[in-house]
Simulated assay, not measured.
Amino acid sequence: MTIDFQTYFELLNLYSDYAMAVDSADWEKWPDFFVEDGTYRLQPRENFEQGLPLCLLALESRAMIKDRVYGVKETMYHDPYYQRHIVGTPRVISVEGGRDADTIHSEANYVVVRTKYDGESTVFNSGYYRDVIVRTPEGLKLQSRLCIYDTEMIPNSIIYPI
């Protein structure tokens, strides 16, 4: 269950590039981190640990992720804010496909800090990612990203990607 340095470096870049894209509000880049049938879900830790399927948000394809981008940019009215992801070093849980690491199962802790334009920075959300990452001709992509957040208490609502 080991991967070579090059593959791990690609994994680190995937995590950091993802955080930078969503923190810079470059929403059009967000779907590109996923394969066509990739999934993105936000689930409270309590539901995850009890095996309950209920999620706050469940996007079942890159097309649905693109639709969410449209919603964030064009249809949702909200008090705008900046966000900053602090993502821990990913931990490789398992690898399929030998040295080429065709599929990587990994986890990483995250904290999202939210700053309103006229306010303080506060911790908005914390938890961990549970990811399935696949190798594609374009590099590593997310097959699934499950954001397991620590508390069921969400201030206001989650507009931007975690």
Rank of each mutant, 00 (worst) to 15 (best):
Arg62Lys: 14
Tyr110Ser: 07
Ser94Lys: 15
Val69Gly: 00
Ser106Pro: 14
Val134Arg: 02
Ala101Asn: 04
Val69Phe: 00
Glu60Trp: 07
Gly98His: 04
Cys55Ile: 07
Val92Asp: 03
Arg91Val: 06
Arg91Pro: 05
Met76Leu: 15
Val112Glu: 06
Asn109Tyr: 14
Val95Tyr: 01
Thr151His: 04
Tyr160Val: 02
Tyr117Ala: 11
Glu74Gln: 12
Ile65Met: 00
Leu54Cys: 09
Asn47Val: 04
Asp150Val: 04
Leu59Gln: 13
Leu52Tyr: 07
Thr136Gly: 02
Leu146Cys: 09
Met64Lys: 07
Leu54Gln: 12
Tyr128Ser: 07
Val69Ala: 00
Val132Leu: 09
Asn47Gly: 07
Ser121Arg: 11
Ala58Asn: 09
Gly88Val: 11
His85Ser: 07
Ser157Asn: 14
Ile104Trp: 09
Gly97Pro: 13
Val113Trp: 12
His105Met: 12
Tyr149Gly: 10
Thr75Glu: 10
His78Asp: 04
Val87Glu: 15
Val123Asn: 05
Glu152Asp: 07
Thr89His: 12
Phe48Asn: 15
Glu152Leu: 06
Gly98Ile: 02
Lys116Gly: 13
Arg62Leu: 07
Val72Gln: 00
Val69Arg: 00
Met64Ala: 11
His78Gly: 05
Pro155Trp: 04
Glu120Trp: 03
Ile93Ala: 11
Thr89Leu: 13
His85Pro: 02
Ile148Asn: 10
Thr103Arg: 15
Val132Pro: 10
Glu152Ile: 05
Thr151Glu: 02
Lys141Gln: 05
Ile104Val: 12
Pro155Leu: 11
Asp150Ala: 11
Glu107Asn: 10
Ala101Leu: 03
Asp100Arg: 12
Glu60Met: 11
His105Asn: 15
Met153Lys: 09
Arg99Cys: 04
Ala58Ser: 09
Tyr82Met: 15
Pro155Met: 10
Tyr149Lys: 10
Gln83Ala: 03
Lys116Tyr: 08
Arg114Glu: 01
Glu152Lys: 08
Leu57Val: 03
Ile159Lys: 02
Gly98Met: 05
Ile86Glu: 10
Cys55Glu: 06
Leu146Phe: 06
Gln50Glu: 13
Val69Cys: 01
Pro53Asn: 06
Thr122Cys: 02
Val87Ala: 12
Arg91Gln: 13
Asp102Gln: 07
Pro155Gln: 13
Leu57Asp: 06
Pro161Gln: 08
Arg91Cys: 14
Thr136Cys: 03
Val112Tyr: 01
Pro90Glu: 03
Lys116Ile: 05
Val92Asn: 05
Met153Thr: 14
Ile158Leu: 11
Gln83Val: 10
Thr103Lys: 15
Leu142His: 15
Ile148Thr: 14
Val132Gly: 09
Ile148Val: 15
Ser157Glu: 08
Glu107Pro: 10
Gly98Thr: 01
Val111Met: 08
Ile65Arg: 00
Glu49Thr: 08
Met76Phe: 13
Val72Ser: 00
Val112Trp: 02
Ala63Met: 14
Tyr129Lys: 11
Tyr160Phe: 09
Glu60Asp: 08
Phe124Cys: 02
Glu152Ser: 12
Val134Tyr: 01
Leu140Gly: 04
Ser61Pro: 05
Arg62Ala: 12
Lys73Ser: 00
Gly139Ile: 07
Ile104Thr: 12
Ile158Asp: 05
His85Ala: 01
Glu60Gln: 11
Gln143Leu: 10
Asp118Glu: 10
Tyr70Lys: 10
Arg84Ala: 08
